[in-house]
Design a protein around this nucleic acid. Sequence first.
DNA 1: CAGTGAGCGAGCTTCCGCTTGACTT
Length: 778
Amino acid sequence: MAKNLVIVESPAKAKTIEKFLGKDFKVVSSFGHIRDLPAKKMGINIETGFQPEYEISADKKKLVSELKKLAGKAELIWLATDEDREGEAISWHLIEALNLPKEKIKRIVFHEITKNAITEAVKNPRDLDVHLVNAQQARRVLDRLVGFEISPVLWRKVKPRLSAGRVQSVAVRLIVEKEEEINNFKPESFFKAKARFILVKDGKTLLEAELPKKLKSKKEAEEFLNECIGSTFTVEAVEKKPGKRSPAPPFTTSTLQQEAGRKLGFSVAKTMLVAQQLYESGKITYMRTDSVNLSSLAINTAKQTIIDTYGEAYSKPRQYKTKSKSAQEAHEAIRPTYIANSEIEGNSDQVRLYDLIRKRTLASQMTDAKLERTTVKIDISNSKEKFVAKGEVIIFDGFLKVYTESTDDDDNNEDQKGLLPPLSVGDRLKRKNIEVVQRFTKQPPRYSEASLVKKMEELGIGRPSTYAPTISTIQRREYVEKKDIPAKTRSFTTLRLTDGQIEEIIQKEKYGYEKAKLVPTDIGIVVNAFLMENFGDVMDYNFTANVEKEFDEIAEGKKVWNDSIGRFYVPFHKGVEHSLEHSEKATGQRLLGVDPKSGRNVYARIGRFGPMIQIGEAEDDEKPAFASLLKGQSISSITLEEALDLFKLPRTVGSYEGEDIIAAIGRFGPYVKHKNKFYSLPKGVNPMEINTEQAIAIIKEKIQKDKEKFIKEFADEKIQVLNGRYGAYIKKGRKNYRIPKDKDPAALTLEEVNEIIENADKAPKGRRKTSTRKTKKK
DNA sequence: CAGTGAGCGAGCTTCCGCTTGACTT
């Protein structure tokens, strides 16, 4: 038995560290936090200074008892959790939950997983930092109070099962306000002049130049072109300036999510999933980090790799500083474990993400790119304006050899600059043609998942481990949805001057297409308005930054955590009570008009199950009629006509095999019903318009699929053996059962099946319950 | 999963941050 027990947070880390420490050390993992507030209740005693009632998390019970056993046998226990607020708290919870005696505890920290860093850490143990632990408790308690006091207000005032929180509600606010900004945006048009010249000297060299000034109107554009008609054009100045471009720092969680989104088209969740796989197979360092720091080992191997591959001239070792104030820097930047490895084994997603991480890491250790920027000014004899041509040449590529960072801007290809032809002052230019093209100011782009993460990081809201889950939460709660914004069409005018004639051309262009952007739903808009009205303090973009300052002071021992929470809680709780008593139900209700059939009012509003249309009032003698909005419809934009259309469902489509086919919309979307069976309609198929032929095709297809799923059945017992996503399974009534791997599904006897069912039903219920809950949440 | 919707009311929902498997249909 090893004399020393080391506890870290991550099992992959434990494996690596054990190699460095030798046989006297056993390294195990806590798998993150082991204790937390109870899942289903507040768990905070407000009277006794917000004392938390911690519980060992359900999924950690087994682990904790194992750790207890190991700790009992060890002489020394080294708590090597991360050096940040949460890590310190994990160590403290370990001490409490495992009942570790003080004299057996050593607290050690390191920021990089290198042999040097670990052995140094073991030589320099310290005491547990109680103040840092208290800062974490304050953070935890604050988040619980905010989440568990505001959410129930939403259940009463908006809709059950909704949620609010310090992080998610502000994320939704960002998206709602972006949409408002876009709605209020009025595009302005202006005119941009572009000229094509031929160098008189040789009669063939082509030069393109632009008028930097925006021309405000068509009239102004015409005036300018008229000035150009009789003008001579002369090169007035040629200016050359050296320029440089520097590489971006190595990846943090947030920048990795942004770049993987832009370059590979990964969602934030997918990036994290693939990164986790790379981490677990030892190919990259830890993927949840806010640090741009590289270990000296990494900097040295990167240097060697760059020199070996590209030559000395490309190497420039750099250490980057984190800009973000909220960074806790417990880990290194995300980088390959072995930087020299240019290729890895793995699926294509893993290979592509690894490649991105490796190139970014290498580039960060490479020299600047050197550029030469040339600006040519062209005099127009009859105008005080000047044309300008800009060129850019890369003299030395430096880091650009391996990596260029992408931007969120819609690719502005017009600005692409290249090499300019050699020109001298005084050179005469002949005008080939001049075009003045109508342009429009652009509305701000909506947030993508990754650009939202970027914004949240700027505001200090959320942490590397929560960016991806938060984005899932606000979509799962149906506050926002991710969708493609279709392009719109508009016409624009071009005035073209060739020879002495000005010609007017009107063309059409598409604009405004956006892919996979976050857009608020009706519920998101209503909830946000409600929270802004009633909980403005928590919704403030600076709220997190301010409480973080408070937490820092607690961590420094300057403030007592319970007092800090108390100062927040008293007015906050009053606000909760006040809004429970006084605020109206928030339904986002909009009167659409009057139903011509019944003469009753038609409203769009949020109901128990989401956005819907209501005809008539609840107080009327006759019960109101209800219908859910379709996907893509919204309370703010639906018309009376569209609303009334919703009541045409369910409708009889036609008949098939002697029975009616009914089309309608249910809890899970549009469907057709035939012989009492439901068939979901695929995306884009409108239940209002579907015809008999289409419906029959859908029904037949489903029947065919079910046939493929079918393996065998015991009809008397109502038991079926079916093929599913995860292989064969047994279905009895509504319940599903796994088939043991050593059994051939097709050969199962009724006896065997019943045995499997009995065993599964007997099995400990705890597990079953949590698993069913998880699937429900989806 | 199963195709609702008012109102009645029981009983439920909910936070953020740290980490992965066990399990799913």
